[in-house]
Design a binder for these strands. Structure first.
Lengths: 126, 126
DNA sequence: GTCGTTGTCAACCATGTGGTTGAGTAAACG
DNA sequence: CGTTTACTCAACCACATGGTTGACAACGAC
């Protein structure tokens, strides 16, 4: 949990930048060198290198060596971590939502006349 | 795309903070007031209020009004946006990976003897 | 060995972020 | 009315982030 917490922060943080998401998108189609990745943007190579470092530290990317070149490879494994986290809380929220729907439906069916006393806000506050 | 790009940045950015993820986790079990959300952490109420603003601007949360209280409600809809983005590139990366696996498997099956000439580095370099 | 290519590291700068405190707003309570 | 509760807004501060430029390292080519 503790370690994963840090990992999640890094991954989410890395993907919070549109340029970095763009690079991930590019890398999903195949490995690329730093220069190739930098080409579409009008920022310096150093800036791109920094972005790659962020992606690497988030575990989204690996860099190897090929002469002067540093081919970059997308490592999609950490995606699972995010997906699991997201799914967990999405499901919970949706279950809650459906329970609320049921409660409201039951209330409407049972006692439409007495339902507007003081009660239904508390269901949300709890 | 343009609007979604900004939205994605905000959502990923919002979830890049462990405190905010924690709040989302808490809110998945039910709505809560700002004070209730602040209780577990030893930061000021103002800091929590700021976090909620970030979550709200990311579309993860909605705040309503109940007398002095501002009940916070988790809005899990934006999760879809993230999930779709993630799945898109994960799938591409995995497809690529599987194609590579097939190529390597075919190479091993076909000509194991001649395979160690110069070729299979591409697997590691990629 | 020297040169060009490819990329990293270091220093710096502007802006953003998470935290603080202090003041102010909105509504219930007395 | 004034007080209390629950919260937001504004100003400030330390540090992180994304960008820059300049120097330099690793390697292939000449």
């Amino acid at each position: 949990m503790v370690d994963n917490d840090d990992r999640l922060s890094r991954v989410f943080g890395a993907l919070a930048d549109p340029t970095r998401r763009d690079m991930v998108a590019r890398l999903a189609t195949g490995d690329a060198t730093v220069g190739e990745l930098a080409a579409p943007y009008d920022v310096s190579l150093q800036a791109v290198s920094k972005h790659l470092k962020v992606l690497e530290e988030a575990g989204l990317v690996r860099r190897s060596r090929d002469a002067q070149r540093r081919p970059v490879h997308l490592d999609a494994e950490v995606f699972d971590l995010m997906t699991k986290w997201i799914e967990k809380y999405r499901q919970r929220a949706e279950e809650r939502y459906q329970r609320l729907d049921q409660v409201l439906a039951r209330m409407q069916g049972k006692d439409l006349a007495t339902a507007n006393d003081d009660d239904q806000q508390r269901g949300a506050a709890g």
